Amino acid sequence: MSLIIAYVGKKGCVMASDKRKIGYFGDKEKLAELEKDLYNGKIDNDEDFLSKANELGISIKITDDANKIKVIANTIRGEVSTKGTFETRRRRIYGTTNGYQIVELLGSETESRKAGKSGVIIFGNEYAKRMAETLIQRKWKASQSLRYMGDIFESIILEVASKTPTVGNKVDVLMQQPKFSESDAQKHLNMTIDHDIKVLIKFRQDLTEKLVQQNLDIEMANKIIDKGEVGKVVNVDGNMLYVQLNDKTQAVDGNWKQLAAPGQNVLMFTESDNVKIGDKVIIENEDLCLKKDKSSLKCDIILCSL
């Protein structure tokens, strides 16, 4: 659902892309039918696209704010991606003066990496690419400046967008003109791409850790006890009580680290002067208290079920 057009040569690199992003939700077979009509050019505007999706029972979210191209260290990177069930597949072009590389990634693993010196490169679905190629052949002149090439690429993307909803009508254009020989260009690209992939790996690792933590938070939050007996008083020292947890209760801290297992003692505080060894401790209406008279207790731990 993208269209990226790049020129790489002696003058530098210019790259243009649309900003469209489309999210789907619905039956896989119906979705395949919708995509078939899209890529065959049977749907040529957003209204018909939404109407056809509604007819098939497919929910769609269309946005035109995705940043598909960016400048990284005198290099322009363009990316199209497809989210699978378990991994995201990325296809990237990195372009600078006198050189480019096309990188295929699955997750953060490099599947292929190809280098070139110059040319016009197009990323997109086959239907959009065919239209763009025809328009480039009609409008292209090698003697044009990079800025003028960028204007041409923008006009091509807008024309394609008017004929297929797979491409949006908002366009980004970026240009870089560092002074690199062909060999220097590839050396610079190698360093830039290696670093960029390391950044992606770190991002994915951080994201995985966050997701794991979120899942743990949800799991443990569901175990927080808000009702029932949790233990009994085994020692009284002024306003401090030592409470032995029952066989279904554990104590954890704010990071869900276990502080006390079932059968172990935890410290609680009371303002009552009528606490006896053996008194039951309960949680009632989410309040920690003694069972016999509902006098309030306090502690700095979280009580959870196993």
Rank of each mutant, 00 (worst) to 15 (best):
K83S: 09
G99V: 01
A261P: 02
L56Q: 12
L216V: 14
S143R: 04
K163V: 01
S112Q: 09
V167Y: 09
M149S: 00
I156F: 11
D226K: 11
D64L: 05
K298Q: 13
D206A: 15
K223M: 13
T110M: 11
K10M: 04
E33I: 10
I277L: 06
S112T: 11
K170F: 05
V281Y: 03
I93Y: 03
I136V: 15
M240A: 10
I4F: 12
I4V: 04
I4W: 03
R113F: 10
S59L: 10
K117E: 10
Q186W: 02
Q205D: 15
V199S: 07
R77E: 14
I4R: 02
R89A: 08
T85V: 04
V236N: 11
R130N: 14
I4H: 04
K291H: 13
A32I: 00
D293I: 01
G124W: 05
D293M: 08
H188E: 13
T85M: 05
A142E: 15
A251N: 05
S155I: 02
D18G: 01
T82V: 03
I283K: 07
N215Y: 05
I121E: 12
L267W: 00
S155E: 06
D273Y: 11
D206S: 09
M149H: 07
Q205E: 14
L174D: 01
G119V: 03
L303E: 06
K10W: 00
V266S: 02
L290D: 10
D226I: 08
G41H: 06
F25S: 11
T96I: 09
G57E: 09
N190D: 07
I197C: 08
A132E: 07
I69A: 07
I62K: 13
E219P: 00
S155M: 04
I69Q: 10
L241T: 03
K187C: 03
S296M: 14
V281Q: 04
G95S: 09
M175D: 01
D273R: 08
E286T: 11
K139F: 12
L38K: 05
Q213M: 08
S81Y: 13
F49D: 03
V71F: 05
D247H: 05
S59K: 13
L158G: 12
K202W: 08
V230I: 15
L189S: 04
Q214T: 07
N285F: 03
A6Y: 03
K139M: 15
E126G: 07
M220P: 06
T192A: 13
K170I: 14
N235Y: 11
K114R: 04
R130Y: 01
A161H: 06
G12E: 01
G12S: 00
R91H: 06
K129R: 06
D293G: 06
D44A: 06
K170P: 05
E79Q: 10
A221T: 11
Q264R: 13
N54V: 02
A142R: 08
I218N: 12
I43V: 07
A185Y: 10
D172L: 10
I4E: 06
S17R: 07
N222T: 02
G9K: 00
K223Y: 09
I93T: 03
K210N: 12
D194S: 14
R91V: 04
V252F: 01
E182H: 09
R130G: 05
